[in-house]
Amino acid sequence: MEHPAHPEVTFHHAPGGDETVKRIIKTTVILSVITLIELALGFWIYFMHKSPDYSHGFVLFLKGVIVILSLAKAFYIVGVFMHLGDEIRNLIMTIVVPLLLFVWFIAAFLWDGDSWKNLRNTHGKTKPATEQQQVEPAAKKPGGVE
């Protein structure tokens, strides 16, 4: 055994040579390019916000693309830099499967936040929904109901 201090390890990774360095450089380039694309989309959203009648749906679409690009970055950092991609399937699964809880975690809480907003805007569904109630308090009398 190469490392008798670690009897848990059945198959040792052979130390990578130049191709490992090449892979690191390639991943660095990918991460940088994705970040630059994210920034470009961020600036696109910034300039769209300047005109008063921008398309909310399209901004939401761009934000969705940025989220997917961030997940791609996470995949490369974990898979290549943290070498999880080089480990055996058992280890990959014991890390990745519990993280699936995030899917429902995110959906449930954002849903809850949205419902909270609707309840507040409609005073617990006793009033018809008025969008942007707090953005336009000019219509509100001073000392009025919050």
């Binding site: 809880l101 954002l110 809850d112 936040g113 949205d114 909270w116 707090q134 953005v135």
Partner: peptide, 29 residues
């Protein structure tokens, strides 16, 4: 690190919940 990911995830999701519950949120730009 997996447990730490859940800690950070809980923080960020809580932030998202509050942000979704507001009619107005500051523009990061």
């Amino acid at each position: 690190l997996m447990s730490d990911a859940f800690t950070f995830g809980a923080f960020l999701i809580s932030y998202g919940t509050i942000r979704f519950s507001q009619n107005y949120w500051p523009d990061p730009n």
